[in-house]
Design a protein around this nucleic acid. Structure first.
Lengths: 209, 209
DNA sequence: TAGATTGTTAATCGATTAACAATC
DNA sequence: TAGATTGTTAATCGATTAACAATC
């Protein structure tokens, strides 16, 4: 089983290499990826192990072939579908942010309880009332959801999403969700992140990265 | 020196206890905080050590007094000032999100290169043209900044911010910033987070939290 | 060949958890 | 007192880094 950190770094390496490929580079060494991504070369080589892809001492890694291998590991064979719940300021920004950004993961439906926000197309995504949540998730076989609702509503919505078949959640609400352990939850808590940055800005960063 | 993880969890415990205090609770046990925050009781007790605050076997911790101790540890004696760079969809959402949310950390200035977005008040925050960046940061003694600009502009802006005295960065741009090691950088990369959630939604979450 | 890089194992490091005497 | 919880140390766990033979 690959660790969450490794998956994140592979995703980062991929982005870096896509840029290199676009610039006409064909081969890359581990230390070049490492430098661009702020990690060690040993870390890169270790992270690449689960892809099963090999480089050569002479030329390093073929960028195109390595991108293929990482894609095989990380991406769904068919495009993975994501639901967004909560079309407030943050929800809209998320829609704008992800529109066309990644080909393999895309937000295919947005939900809100406010009647004024539904049955529209927002940044290319169709919006629905909350009553449609179960139907759409099952119809579109959505397995991933983004929660961008107020903290007070987040747990109830997460429970609903899981009951309809969602297996992974990206949670922007500032609350710790309690869910079955086979559901993957990643909390993106901006308040805590900002407080942490504020703390280390005052007390010194230590030697990181 | 406290670890970044401990700082994050203390911030989380604080939020939980503020809610309890608002509900009229006076005392709390470590296992109650742990349950609410999805961590172990031993973790909570260990995290509380650097606050220097003690509970009693009989009653646990006095919530009000513990909140005070955590505040002494985490918060700046005077309100800490933050700059936001980039007033796009995401920047606006960030402004809306943080307005009045935390009393001890507040966004006091926003910047953008688009003349149509500056010299306004957006969600209670004044916006300025990029040319004013150095002046305002120095005048307001801003030590923390949020980067919400496109990836292509992020490194140059980060360099500027650091040159003006910023010591901590919350980076939303999908790029690895290269900065002096005494500057604290936290990356909040939504694309990578979503890809990670998508991966573990398909492959099983493992036993987390 | 000599020299740099690869894949992978062993050593190190740091964080989490378990354990337990002290305490109320 | 008996029982639960505290503060803190020791043990465990997992991830990162160092090392190195194999390779081009």
């Amino acid at each position: 089983m690959i660790s969450d950190k490794t998956v994140g770094r592979l995703s980062l390496y991929r982005r870096t290499m896509q840029k290199m490929l676009a610039e006409g580079r064909e081969y890359v060494y581990s230390h070049e990826i490492a430098h661009a991504c702020g990690v060690t070369a040993a870390q890169v080589r270790r992270d690449l192990m689960p892809t099963g892809f090999s480089g050569t001492p002479k030329r390093g890694y073929s960028i195109a072939a390595l991108l293929q291998s990482i894609g095989n590991l990380l991406d769904d064979p068919e495009r993975q579908r994501v639901a967004l719940v909560g079309i407030g300021n943050l929800g809209r920004a998320i829609l704008a942010y992800f529109t066309g950004r990644r080909p393999n993961v895309s937000i295919v439906a947005a939900f809100d309880q406010d009647p004024n926000k539904v049955n529209q197309v927002i940044h290319g995504c169709r919006s629905y009332p909350m009553e449609e949540l179960g139907r759409i998730i099952e119809e579109k076989r959505i397995e991933v959801a983004i929660i961008a609702v107020p903290a007070s509503a987040a747990q109830a919505i997460a429970d609903q999403l899981v009951s309809y078949g969602v297996r992974g959640l990206l949670n922007f609400a500032p609350v710790s969700l309690r869910l079955p352990s086979d559901v993957y939850v990643e909390d993106l808590d901006m308040t805590i992140s900002l407080e942490r940055v504020a703390y280390f800005a005052r007390h010194g960063a230590g030697v990181r990265r």
